[in-house]
Nucleic acid binder design. Sequence first.
DNA 1: ATGTTATTGTCAGTGACTGACATTATCTGT
DNA 2: ACAGATAATGTCAGTCACTGACAATAACAT
Lengths: 184, 184
Amino acid sequence: MRRRLQQAALELFGERGYELTTAAEIAAKAGVTERTFFRHFADKREVLFDGETALSDILNSALREAPAELGPWDALFRAFEAAERLFVENRSFAEPRHRLIERSPALQERALAKTRSLIAGLASALRERGVPDHAAMLAAQMGMAALGHAVACWFDDGSSGLGDHLAQAFRKVRDLSASSPGIG
Amino acid sequence: MRRRLQQAALELFGERGYELTTAAEIAAKAGVTERTFFRHFADKREVLFDGETALSDILNSALREAPAELGPWDALFRAFEAAERLFVENRSFAEPRHRLIERSPALQERALAKTRSLIAGLASALRERGVPDHAAMLAAQMGMAALGHAVACWFDDGSSGLGDHLAQAFRKVRDLSASSPGIG
DNA sequence: ATGTTATTGTCAGTGACTGACATTATCTGT
DNA sequence: ACAGATAATGTCAGTCACTGACAATAACAT
């Protein structure tokens, strides 16, 4: 049922756009009532954000299983490497979805919130590895920024694999932050 | 009028919380109609997010005026230094507002969106300095993460100034990303 | 005083979302 | 196959965010 609703929503959003599609229409297309729609999804946006637990699970377990002697930055890199498969497999599904989100501020807000909760999960896993509170959040945000950068470059330039772009992104973060402001 | 509405909203949100306060109540407390409220603010959340242009302006002009030979990381540091005053002066107003936002997912989403548009502005200013497209976004995100970290530490430990925390945050980013994943 | 313009009030309407309760599957043990 | 429990769905009424259209009023220039 959830799948049917998600499918109907994707198609309608694709045709009329997110704001011009009512929840009742989605429900009707799926053959149910509007009320049923809101029993499956907390709100209209949520119908597009449902596969995110998989990524979170992979990242968290990868962080837990990473060698204890690894620092947060290397641990994050390993975690993202472990999630590479997920991105590659979902690419064809993720791209149209991304275009939808781009066109609607409301959806962008929700996407940001989802990313934020992913970051919070990463930070929490880093804290369990002994990283201090705020530093864990900082590292998680840096890592997520690097991941996003890698994915963006990967979308632009498919000739290299996501893994290559990821390693490059991590290097870029190091190089960008290499100078010492406040000293010079 | 905007001020009156914002003031009324702040008080009501403080008493009953954001979700339990209706736009009509805010308007009534300010002595106007609900319709007038929505003429001044695009939506109910926006009443709490209105002073953000000041920060954006300072950062952008600081980035434009920074010496051209400075790399993105140092330029960002200078920009944040230029905005320090703004944070110090608004601290007493920002703290209760922050507590309100923390308590409401809807407000958190909006706050994230505002931060995002700030980051986008930074990235755009960096591009004008010659930083390539995606790298500009990456650097802007890193900088914003550092700034957020500095502010968080500053809230926790007021004994040092925000400037000190900022320099420390930028150092932390460098140190965290210093290792070379994929090599070891 | 008169015309202009910006701000507000009024009203009717749409659409997201919720609570309460009835109805209908779906499943379980016998 | 049957009765009873459990879960998913339908129905309905209602609240609230938000919008468009138009009237009323205030502020201001001429």
